[in-house]
């Protein structure tokens, strides 16, 4: 240990050696931007589909869910990355689960005390974060093997990539399904009088799957890298 310290004497706050890599190097920036497109958790990694179906009926819960997932993923990736050399291999999944679950419980308690209205809106979705495969997936695939700062970027990036698709799907589902956006009526009454009807099917889960499918189609048509070779 002491030998190692001598070799890299300057350590920054996030355990990164400033001499070798700046905080937002190209590689680190890619950690943030990749999950938005090339390595999107929903459309490419196919993680977190279940919650994407459940909470995209309206824009509001989708946005709030995005924010809470960003917070939880950032924090849990940091914690697991800090502990990565201490966590016993055989119970690592349990440890990850405990970290995520206690963070979620903390967020839940704090919101209930200080932001009761937000808490009421979220109640069920906060619990859903634990079951979100993205969180565990990134802990297992990235945080366990990488430094703290990189893990943080990876967590935030993936949560943002997830949230981006979530908000996009919710936008179309709310607009076409109930003619509203963020709870406000946007399709004018006059159009309904001409015979337009809200598409009730958009409110049901299968349409979320189909919408996500359409996004994957568009993304692959645009981004040739993603198409399998065989």
């Amino acid at each position: 240990m002491s030998k190692k310290l001598k070799q890299t004497p300057k350590k920054s706050l996030f355990f990164i050696n400033k001499n070798t890599e700046p905080l937002f190097s190209k590689k680190n920036r890619a950690l943030l931007s990749d999950p938005l497109d090339d390595n999107n958790p929903i459309t490419v990694q196919v993680l977190g589909i279940c919650s994407a179906l459940a909470i995209t009926v309206q824009l509001k819960p989708a946005i709030v869910m995005t924010l809470s997932v960003i917070a939880v993923m950032g924090a849990s990736n940091v914690i697991v990355s800090v502990l990565r050399n201490l966590i016993p291999n055989r119970i690592r999944i349990i440890v990850q689960l405990v970290v995520v679950a206690s963070l979620v419980a903390l967020v839940d308690q704090i919101l209930k005390a200080f932001a009761y209205d937000v808490y009421k809106q979220l109640s069920i979705f906060i619990g859903l974060i634990i079951t979100n495969c993205i969180v565990m997936g990134r802990l297992e695939a990235f945080a366990l093997g990488n430094g703290v700062w990189k893990s943080f970027l990876d967590g935030v990036g993936n949560a943002a990539g997830y949230g981006f698709i979530l908000i996009l799907v919710a936008f179309f589902r709310e607009l076409l399904g109930s003619g509203k956006l963020y709870g406000y009526q946007v399709i004018p009454e006059a159009i309904y009088e001409l015979g337009y009807e809200n598409n009730g099917l958009m409110l049901l889960s299968p349409m979320a799957l189909i919408t996500v499918g359409i996004f994957i189609w568009i993304q692959r048509a645009r981004n040739r890298k993603l198409i399998e070779k065989n």
Binding site: A54, I55, V57, Q58, P61, S123, I124, E174, G177, S178, L203
Partner: peptide, 8 residues
Amino acid sequence: HKGETAGL
């Protein structure tokens, strides 16, 4: 409600 489906 405690946990009814949003939007439904």
